[in-house]
Simulated assay, not measured.
Amino acid sequence: MQAPDAPLFNRALLTNDDGVDASGLAALVEAVTPLAREVWIVAPEHDQSGVSRALSLHAPLRLFDRGFRRYAVSGTPSDCVIVALRHVLRDNPPDIVFSGINRGANLAEEVGYSGTVSAALMAQLSGVPAYAVSQAWRDRNNVRWHTAISGLDAVVRRFGAPTSVLNVNFPDVEPEEVTGLSVTRQGPPGTMALDVDTREDTRGFPYHWLSMRRSPARPGGDDTDVAALRRREVSVTPIGFDMTDVAALARLQG
């Protein structure tokens, strides 16, 4: 019998933006356990989807012990990474950070407001290599977590501790239907309409929900994250902090 592959890391920190009790975080624990000797969780107490890189600068943070090497934070994904690195694991820092597994792909313009990706960026900014991991779905009640669980090991063993955040998206197909892996660039923005839905509570006072409607993302070329998922491939996109619009820069300089 062939021996299982040895762990790549001594200590891994796991976080997300869907909350400490999210199914995707449980899936991430299962996927990362063979990769690290110690798995630590520091994740938001509640769902923090869409908060991007927000920090809680005007309110105290509460840290809740949720079991063995498992903590919840009353803040954003970026708060969780800072609390983990500068408090919980201050004397025993992790070798790697994994953020996810997000319920839904983080592609194209969605990368900009994703808490999943932002947590990984905060880790990178703090000097710790990081992956952001997401699982695409068409039916939100039947997310194929097993596809990401079965595929993440090979991705991480191929790329190791990356120098840039790697944004990994798994297609919404069964593991045996995945056609390969592509290293991609971020796709172009799609059409996303934001609006305000105003309602009235039972006491007659108005309140407001933000509403969001998406159109299908445009591939923008065969080398993008969107195109890879449409080919049923795993998309791996290196993400950085430079938000310069290179094409606009050239026009303005000219």
Rank of each mutant, 00 (worst) to 15 (best):
M1D: 14
A6F: 00
F9K: 04
R11S: 10
L14S: 05
T15K: 05
V20A: 04
D21F: 03
S23Y: 02
L25D: 00
A43Y: 03
P44A: 00
P44T: 03
R53N: 14
L57I: 07
H58A: 12
F64W: 06
D65Y: 02
G67W: 04
Y71D: 00
Y71V: 02
G75C: 09
C80H: 00
V81A: 11
I82A: 12
L85E: 03
R86V: 01
V88C: 02
S99H: 04
R103N: 08
L107Y: 04
E110Q: 12
E110H: 09
V111T: 15
G112T: 05
V117P: 01
A119H: 09
A120Y: 08
L121C: 12
M122I: 12
Q124L: 15
Q124F: 06
S126F: 00
P129D: 01
Q135T: 09
R138N: 13
D139G: 03
D139N: 10
R144I: 00
W145D: 07
W145S: 08
A154Q: 13
V156H: 13
R158T: 15
R158S: 13
F159H: 15
T163E: 14
L166I: 10
L166S: 09
P175K: 13
E176A: 15
E177R: 15
E177H: 15
E177W: 08
V178E: 05
T179S: 14
L181I: 14
V183L: 14
G187W: 03
T191V: 03
D197K: 06
E200D: 04
D201I: 11
T202A: 05
G204D: 08
W209I: 05
L210G: 02
L210E: 06
M212F: 08
R213A: 05
R213N: 06
R218E: 06
R218P: 02
D222R: 11
D225S: 04
A227H: 13
L229H: 12
R230A: 11
R231I: 00
E233C: 08
E233I: 01
V234G: 11
P238T: 12
I239E: 09
I239L: 10
D242E: 12
T244N: 04
T244Q: 07
T244M: 07
V246F: 05
Q253H: 05
Q253I: 02
G254D: 00
G254L: 00
G254F: 00
